[in-house]
Structures are given as C-alpha cells and as structure tokens.
Simulated scan of single mutants.
Amino acid sequence: MAQALEETGLRVFPNAATARSFDDKLAQARLFAAAGVPTPHSWCFLDAREAHDFADRAAYPLVFKLRGGAGSGNVRKVCSAREAHGLIRQMFGRGMRASAVGLAAAASTGRAAGYPRRSAREWAAAAGRALRRIIRPHREHGYALFQEFMPGCDHDWRVVVIGERAFAYRRSVRPDDFRASGSGLIDIPDATGIPWDIVDQAFSLSCHWGFQAMAFDFLRHPDWGLKVIEMCYVFGTVGLHMCPGYFQPDGTWVAGQFHAEELIFDDLVATLS
C-alpha cells in the first residue's frame, strides 16, 4: 500500500527504497554483494543438490539463517557437514517454522534493557502477540542460506541512521552464545567511544540507497576489519533513547536525547514544504 501511494506522489514512510529488503536476509545478501559492501560471505542455494555439494566441501562452523527474523531469531551456528545436510533436507522438504522471539527471551531482554516500567497490560499484550506467532508460525522452505562465521567477536555495533543523524551503541553477545542481536546487553558510549568509520559507513550506505531510516549491524575484528551483517528499518528504540546524542554526516556531534519516531515524522513533514 505504501509503495502504491508513493507512486501517486504522496510522501510515505517507509518509502520503496527503505522497505525493499525488509525482513529478507536473502535479498540483503544479494544487495550487499551487488554494491560491494564488506560483509561476511553468504551462500544461498535454491537447488537441494547444489546445497548438499556445498555442505560436503564447506569449512565449518557456518551460520545458518532463515530469510526473516529479528533479535537473532531463526539464526543458528552449524558446526558440521552432518548438521548442514540435516538443515538442507528440512528446508527442501517439510520446511522450517519461522520462530518468533520466545517469551522467555523477550522477558530477559526487557529486564536487561530496562523494560520493567511496562505495565502488566503491556506485557500481556506483547506476550499474546508472541504466543500467536509461536502457535501459528509459517514455514520457510525451498532455499538454504548460509553465512561465513566471524569468530572472536563479543559484541556488535548498532548504528541507526535517520535522515542526517546517526545514533550508535554496542550490544554484547549473550553468555555462551555468538549472537548479540536481541541480547538486551546494551552499552552506551559517549561520542569519543564511537568509531567514526562505522558511523561514516552507515551514512554512506543510507545515502547510496536513499533510505529514510535504517539500522545497520556491524562486526569488527583486528584480523578481518569491518563487516556489515544486516540492516532493517524496523528497530528497537530502547538503545537509541539511551544515546547521549547523534552524529551528523560531517562529524558534528549533537548532544541530547531523542525519539526516533519524532525524528522520522519531522523528516517526513519537512519533505512537504
């Protein structure tokens, strides 16, 4: 509907550019590759035989992903060819249920991120939405998506670009896990603790593709540098609300606390003048 309205000349959020790869890691992998963006190498197979051949010769561990999911949902570490073959058979057979973020995970994330202020009614509503997705999840099938495993990272960087503003913070990996997304373990540095090259890369990608608002996830390691993992225009705002300010594209720091929803709305209204 938003894209149809945009075709009539109306201003909409999200616009077609912002929404085109939403909740589709396969589309993002192809988009990153086409633009030469530094990312972990991805392999996507639409043919079961090709996928099994790859599993026989691949170097492990790998990361297996479904196309959709948030908070590290539908992402798992694959440590052997046997495990990879099993996932491939499932994806080209009965398929795999696309899980929602579990209730326990949502609760632990909320506590870590400072959500206890939510009322009982809000928690009940959130639990009901998650439960409906758990009871009636759809099945993904007909493809296999693997990604290069990047070892030695205990955190990632989330950079949220809204117009000409970039908010950044660190997210630590869950205990005994390799995933930072959805952990709720958020560290908010000041301006001097944020690597500018990460912010600059986020600005560059957002400008290149014409995004109105986008959250980018980055990994960095001394051995293999900076990598873009994923991006999504639908993002949690707890970490952003905690940020002490944002960067502008020229490196200027603007101090203060801001709400993403208001900034997105202000930018949309500004396009009407």
Rank of each mutant, 00 (worst) to 15 (best):
R171V: 08
L145F: 14
I88P: 13
R129Y: 08
G102V: 13
A105V: 01
R165M: 09
G163K: 06
T109D: 02
Q90W: 05
S99Y: 07
H141V: 01
R139Y: 12
A126H: 12
A166P: 14
R158I: 13
P137C: 02
A113L: 07
L87Q: 07
M96F: 11
R82F: 15
C79S: 15
R121V: 10
F92N: 03
A104N: 05
A126M: 15
Y169R: 06
A126Y: 13
A130E: 04
R94W: 03
G95N: 06
I135E: 10
G152Q: 05
V160G: 05
A105S: 04
P137F: 00
Q90S: 12
R121C: 07
I135L: 10
A130M: 04
G93I: 06
H138S: 02
R139L: 06
V159N: 11
E83F: 13
I88R: 08
S80E: 13
A120P: 11
I134P: 00
W157Y: 08
R111S: 01
Q147M: 13
I88D: 15
A100T: 13
G93T: 00
R136D: 09
G86P: 15
Q147L: 10
F92S: 04
G142N: 02
F146G: 02
A166F: 04
R132H: 11
Y115S: 08
W123P: 03
M96W: 13
F149C: 06
H155G: 05
A105H: 04
R136T: 12
R133K: 01
